[in-house]
Design a protein around this nucleic acid. Structure first.
Lengths: 150, 150
DNA sequence: TCTTTTTTCAGAATGATTACGATTTAATTC
DNA sequence: GAATTAAATCGTAATCATTCTGAAAAAAGA
């Protein structure tokens, strides 16, 4: 569980940046989208679609899974969120557009992450592999301090 | 699609090794298990449960998904197969017990793989991460030569 | 062969995700 | 600010991979 919220300044910059990116791309600004983004900006960890629904049901009772999933895909498409698959479940996390390429150490319990600056692809020469390389995944799994004590 | 089968020697050694490991552990040797293993020994690439079912339905009509999945899990537990999750689907691949720790470059089309000897964890000091590390994943995705031309 | 335990079948249940037609809402135009 | 239009949302059903269940069949050991 996340203990500390970010300063309002930090949040609003990222969320409003994302919102204006959306309208620039022709997508509409809705209260639900903003609240979804606000949630991700606060959490800064990997959470599931179900987590999102549960967090938003309070303010939007009757909110549909369709809305959640459609917006999650949209956000990933626009690079506002990043996605990974853990244990057969898609998990999403806020992306800061200013961050350079990096990887994550991920807590399997709460989804909290730690950046890994180093990328194994840096020392991988893709010529000798007769594959056309289109992507890669490097993730380290574990339990964060908070979740170890449980 | 795999073009070349392995020499019978190579196959049978791996398959029979796996079969005797099973009976040593108290699991029964069945024709279905042997044919599943034979399939994986021939393919040497990541395939899905559905692929296995389709390949085996010819010799075992009416074969159930339950049988496939149960045996796949058993094989993974016994380190006979290795498993990864691609696009929300579990994919399985034959493991040679003699191979040391390694990673894969994986063809997103046919599941063909190429070994990557280098492991990014070798130069990752887990002390400074205040996470209890339990695992990691490093995979490179692309398209093999055969699948590029399509 | 007989017994015991495991495996398998057939189909239902689950859980995550996606699809659909109808309705509502945001952005745009007048 | 009302009318228009396109996108977003709802509610629910469909889909897809995977797991479960209880009964029947098959393998291993005595």
């Amino acid at each position: 569980m996340p203990e500390v919220l970010f300063s309002e300044g930090g949040i609003s910059v990222n969320v409003s940046e994302a919102m204006s990116l959306m309208s620039k791309k022709g997508y509409k600004q809705t209260g639900k989208r903003e609240e979804m983004l606000r949630l991700f900006a606060n959490e800064k960890r990997y959470i599931s679609a179900k987590d999102v629904l549960e967090a938003m049901e309070k303010s939007y009772p009757g909110l549909s899974f369709d809305t959640i999933y459609r917006n999650l895909s949209l956000f990933v498409e626009l690079d506002i969120l990043e996605m990974t698959e853990l244990d057969g479940e898609k998990k999403f996390r806020f992306t800061c557009s200013t961050e350079s390429h990096h990887h994550h150490l991920i807590c399997l319990d709460c989804g909290k992450t730690k950046h890994i600056e180093e990328c194994p692809m840096d020392r991988f020469s893709d010529e000798k592999a007769d594959f056309q390389i289109v992507g890669h995944k490097f993730e380290i799994y574990g339990y964060c301090q908070g979740c170890q004590s449980v």
